[in-house]
Each structure stands twice: as structure tokens, then as C-alpha cells.
Design a protein around this nucleic acid. Structure first.
Lengths: 199, 199, 199, 199
DNA sequence: AATGAATGAGAGTTCATTCAT
DNA sequence: GATGAATGAACTCTCATTCAT
């Protein structure tokens, strides 16, 4: 699947995702995305139809990346659920730290950001983000199940309760990190996440 | 302090806070705020200088309102720290529910929203929100202290750790409520909050 | 004539003349003039009715000042027409130099400036400036007459021709000084003025 | 060089130059220019970036036109330096007369006007005008040299002194023409110009 | 008489989107 | 098919001027 068409689309999506994350949906304009992706504006519109559709596609693409680079990587790296949980936090922390050390401000979670900004105005963007969070829960559900298996978690721990709570605390952590412009806030929520996991 | 000037300012701030909350900072334009507040655009600018300054003032005003209507009300209503925690969640839930029942979508936390949207673009907005969260922590610190006093919380519970965690979980809960367009998500985080409080 | 009313008017006129000179008629707004003059905006309007009327009054006031400080001062300082001509140039040069040395850019002739800017839009301003130039010619006519008397000027020199030419060269000199941002351009036209005077 | 892009740009520049000349930089708004040029406002901004940049481009374009229509035309029409000087004055006079006879007021020199209005506020505009005057001097230097060759000018005449003086007198003449709303003032300065040329 | 507060109209500029080559 | 050029609508902000006290 390396057709020229797909390469162009990937370039656009990557540019859009970066720009939306660094600033915000509305602060980024289509020209900036075109410049970053080095495509003509009409080309972008031929591929994605509208800025909103581009955002949805960028959300999906960024989601795929995080799935691989954060969640599946953390699962692959360790069998132990606590290590896995820790691995997720470490990876997200590193993503923020590396940008922060380059002088950029702490960008927070791209999904939280665009949802907070646009959920009221665009239900299609809201739904795209909702689907992302729904999927993220599956990883936490897996971790919760294993935490019970190894006896870390309480016996009554309900994975269907813990999983959304773990997404919630991660989102909250990233909100704090952005509001305080302090990547460390991410790691500081790991203890709370463990608390949730214990039940 | 019911001068004409202050009445006008309050009208503008109320309109701005409502509009920013229902949509977003960038989705709202100054004309809309003027129409809502029934003031001329030049009047608004004479009072607040810029849209950004208006947002900061609106954040502060909304903060004062939440301080009174949510946090201090919850503290006044019950001496018990768990009841107080619960009271905070109930009040914030009610705010969302009443609007949701009127057909509006679940707006989430205005402070989280504007921070997620604007923190990277406007440090003055970011700082204003940061100050709000900092203040909210004081209420949770109080609750944590009392939770230790009555023996609900663990002896080792550190209020300076629990308080930010409680702000974080509340923010995460409101992010979920917005992303899922479901006010119930707020109440569903109360258990996590209690977990944090227990330590 | 030192009534409080007149003092206020003088303060306003002085502020307006300064501001218009330093920037331009349209670049200066009424608020700036009020701030400089430390009067309320409504007070200014009560005294002058409109920005245009204020400009006309400021032109007249500045004219009176230049009459005294430049032309009559130069005439008083020397009986010789060449010295008098030179005195006029020196005084105008000094006005520009002192401001230029304080870091401001070379402002040129306030009458030329406002005429170039506004003559096409406001005939009342144009006429006010025209009257100023008309009056200035009388000083040069006097100098031309004396130049003939002492034999410096040609016998055929017509004062009614030389006088407007001397106003013209002064105006041109101030245009150059402003365009080049170089007060020296003023003095460099003195030789041309002498040439005109000689006939 | 008749691309669509260039045609649009020329239309805009012509409209801008006309409008700025007839009124003033600040009195003309971008909408007027767009209406005159029959282009959309966004198109104008895509081509010129800002009103200030448009003014600079309009100055340059008007300069090219005057170079051709006035200065080079006058040089081509006659070999004799006095005739050439006279030709310059005649051409500028005719430009003013034809508009004046159509009922418009005497607009003066567009370069002098915009410099007098804007030099203090915009150094880029000031510099653009300064460059124009610098170039005009080259024509007068040529004329001064030839005037010496044919023995009209004094032997000691310094072209580097006469040339700026000739620009200065022309500018002064156009200031007078505008202030008095009387095109004849232009021709009346020709004698002074000859005086300068003689040395 | 004097002033703080208000206003309608309009300024320059930018946007997401589409046309025309 | 790809792109440079164009567009209508909307944006934030400012102006000279007047009202209400």
C-alpha cells in the first residue's frame, strides 16, 4: 500500500495531527497543514473534503500510532500488569518530555484537547474521540484482569469499572500536565492509577 | 458595588462565560458575546481590552461562582469529609444534568476546556486556569485532612498528594462526560475519588 | 485672558498640534489628544466640536507660535535681510534637530504635512494651511524688499515672485528632510533660498 | 509577462496608486481599492500581504510610470537641458491640469503626499519614497551637466548640489499647488528651477 | 460644567473553500 | 490530475462622536 496517493495522504495526516496537537483545531488553518505537508490546498481538499473530515482522519491516524507506540509497546515490553501500566505512563511521559525539552510547551493529550475544544460543535469529532477512548479501555481491561490473576488487584475489582477509571485518570493527568505546563504531572498520577488497579 | 459600570461588566462576563463554556473560546466570537450581553462591541473592548483578557476575566468570574456554588456550598452542607466530597460531585453533576436535560450537549469543565484549547497558544489563559486548579486543591486538602481525622483515610495519606489527585480525577471525569456526552460519567468517578481519599 | 476655559483650550491645542505634527492627522486619535491634554473627551468636543475643527484651531495656534518663535524672532535678531533669511532657516533647523537628537524622526513642516494629507479631503483644512503660507510670504516679501535696498538682490527682483518661491523652497526643504529623515537637508536649501533672493 | 497573476496585480496597483493619490493613504480603505480593481479583498491580501506593502508597491509602480511618462519622455523630446527641464515641468503640470479640469482638486505629488503623511509612522514607506527622490535626482544631474556643457550654467555649478535642489523645488511647487488648489503654481516654479540650474 | 460610559459604523486582516487552467 | 488564483463571509479591534449623570 505504498501508492503515491497514500503517501500524500499520510503526509497530510501526519502534518495535521502534529499541528492540531501543538496548537488546537481552530488555531491551525488549512494553509499551515498544506505548508507542513508540502501539498497544494486543492489536493488536500480532494483527499479529505473538509477540515472537519481531515481532523477525524487525523484523530484516527494518531490513534493508530499511539496504539502501536504506547499501548502495544508497553504490553510487549513486560508481562506484569503493573509494569505494563507503568510502561504506558512512561511512554506518554517521554513523548511529552522530549518535546518539552525542545522548548515547546506541554501539549497534553491530543484526543482530550480536540474533544474539549470541539465536542460541543462537532459531533463527528466527538464520536471519533469517544471511539479512541473506548478502545484504550480494552488495554486497561486486560491489565485489570491480569492484576487480579497475579493477586495485585482486589478480588472484587470489576474490570469494566476500573478500565474507564484508568482512562479517566490518564486524561486528567494530561489535563494537569498541560494546565501546569509540567510533564512531571503525568508520572505523578501513576500512583493513583495503581490505586485504581488495586481496587 | 452596583454601579452601572459593574453591572455592565457582570453582564459581559456572564455572557462570555456561558458562551465559552457552551462552545469554545475560538468558536465564540465577540459579536455573540455582545449580543448575549446586550452591549455594544466598543463597550466590551473598553472594559476588557481584548478577547483574551475577557476570557481571563470570565475564567476568574466563573471560578468565583464555582467556589461559592459548588465547593463552599458542599462544605457548608455537611461536616463529614466523604459527604463533602460527594456533595461536590453531586453539585457538578446537577449543573451538567440540568443543561443536558434541556437538550444541550454535555459541556464538561469550562476550565479544562479552555485550558485544553488555549494553553499552548495563550500562557495568560493557561496561568489563569492553573490558578483555579491550585485553589480547588485547597478544598480537597481540607477534606483529606478531615478524612484522616475521622479515620476514613489511611494514616500515611499525604494531603499534598491526594489533593492534586482529586483535582485530576474530577477533571478526567469531566473530560469523559464531554467525550461521551453523558453526565453520568461524572458520578461514576466518585468511587475513584473516594479511593484516592482513602489512600 | 487666563480664564480656566482658555487654559484648557490651550492645553488641548498644544497637545493636538504636537500629536498631529509627530504623526499625522489621521494617525492621531481623539483619545490620544485627550490623554496628552489631560481632558475628558466630552470636554474636548464641547470646546471644538469636531476633530476637523480641532485641527484647524491647532493649525492656527501652531502658526501663531511659528510666527513668533521663528519669523519675528529672526527679524528681530538681525537687520540684514540675508541674516534674517539665514535666521529663519537656523531656527527651523534647530526645532527639528532638537527633536531628532531625542530619537524622534524628522517630522517636517506641520503645515505641509497636514495639507499633503488632508487638502483633498477637507477644504477647510486646506484653506487654513493656505492662509498660513500666505502670511509667511509677507515676511519673505519684506526680506526681498530689503535685499534690493542693500543691493544684494537684482534690480528686477519682484518681491511678489520671490516671496512665494521662498515659501516653496522652504516647504520643499522640509519635505526632503522628512523623506530622508535628515534635518541637515533643511540647511542645505539655504543656498537655494539665497539664489532666489538674489534674483 | 501577461499572466493572469500579473494582470491582477497591475489592476490592484493601478487602483491603489490612483486612490492614494486622490485622497491619502489613510483616507483610502482596502475595500475601496478592491472595488476599483474589481478583485476580492482576500485576493489583494494574497498578492500584497498588507496595506503598507501595497502602498510600497504602488509607490514603486507609480514611480516607474513617472520615470517613463515624465522624465524619460522629457529627455527624449529635446536635447537642450533647459528645454528638458521645461519639459518635465510641462508634463507634470499637464497631469495636474487634466484632472483639475475634470473637477477634481489639485492632488499634488503622490510621493510627497504619502511621505508627508506616513514617513513618521512607516519607515518602509519613507524609504520607498526616499528611493524615488534619489532616482529623480539622476535626471537633474544629467541636465545640470549638460547645462554646463552648453554654457548656460555657471562653471562652478556642482551637479550634486543642484540636483537635490531641483528635486526640492519641484516638491515645494507641488506642495503649493495642492495647498492653493491651483495647478499653475507648478509652472510658476520653473523660473526658480532655471535659477538653480544657472547656479 | 464636566465626565464616565456607551455606541454604530467601519477599519484591516484571515478563514475554509472552490474555481479555472 | 494537480495547482495557482480567486472568493464571500467572518474575524478582532478601533474610530469619532454622543448620551446620561
Amino acid at each position: 500500500m505504498n501508492t503515491r496517493k497514500e503517501k500524500t495522504q499520510q503526509r497530510i495526516l501526519h502534518a495535521a495531527a502534529s499541528a492540531f496537537w501543538l496548537q488546537s483545531y481552530q488555531a491551525v488553518n488549512v494553509n499551515q497543514v498544506c505548508d507542513l505537508a508540502k501539498v497544494n490546498k486543492a489536493t488536500l481538499y480532494q483527499h479529505f473534503g473538509s477540515k472537519e473530515a481531515l481532523a477525524v482522519a487525523a484523530i484516527t491516524q494518531h490513534f493508530e500510532r499511539q496504539k502501536t507506540e504506547v499501548y502495544e509497546a508497553a504490553l510487549s515490553a513486560a508481562p506484569n500488569p503493573i509494569d505494563r501500566l507503568s510502561g504506558i505512563y512512561q511512554r506518554i511521559y517521554q513523548q511529552h518530555l522530549s518535546r518539552y525539552d525542545q522548548g515547546e510547551s506541554c501539549a497534553g493529550c491530543p484526543f482530550v484537547n480536540i474533544s474539549s475544544e470541539m465536542a460541543s460543535s462537532s459531533s463527528v469529532i466527538r464520536d471519533a474521540v469517544d471511539a479512541v477512548f473506548t478502545h484504550f479501555r480494552t488495554y486497561y481491561r486486560l491489565i485489570a484482569r491480569d492484576a487480579k490473576v497475579i493477586g495485585y488487584a482486589n478480588r472484587e475489582l470489576d474490570g469494566d469499572v476500573a478500565a474507564p477509571a484508568l482512562v479517566t485518570i490518564m486524561n486528567g493527568a494530561l489535563v494537569s500536565a498541560k494546565a501546569e505546563n509540567r510533564p512531571d504531572a503525568i508520572l505523578e498520577s501513576l500512583d493513583t492509577a495503581k490505586l485504581i488497579l488495586r481496587g
